[in-house]
């Protein structure tokens, strides 16, 4: 749960969206208004916050909030 809460904070802050909108099924691009550069920066913020590295080919598959939660739970 801690991971999820921290992640939601990061996403809401990076994309300037209300936390209530950051639901598991939300797509970063379609629902949260991100463009491709926002996504790169968001992945960087996740790497920094969780002290992990997300390879580019993995990052490409992180499309929704749930994808991000799953990935971080898997590797951290």
């Amino acid at each position: 749960m801690a991971v999820e809460e921290k992640l939601i904070d990061i996403i809401a802050d990076q994309l300037s969206v209300d936390k209530a909108k950051v639901v598991p099924g939300a797509s970063f691009i379609d629902d949260l208004g991100a463009d491709s550069l926002d996504l790169v920066e968001l992945i960087m913020a996740m790497e920094e916050a969780f002290d992990i590295e997300i390879a580019d080919e993995v990052a490409e598959k992180i499309v929704t909030v749930q994808d991000a939660i799953d990935h971080i739970n898997k590797i951290s």
Binding site: L37, V40, E41, M44, E47, E48, E53
Partner: peptide, 10 residues
């Protein structure tokens, strides 16, 4: 270099 934001150049 992995910490350089994609917004740096723009």
């Amino acid at each position: 270099e992995r910490r350089i934001t994609p917004f740096f150049i723009p």
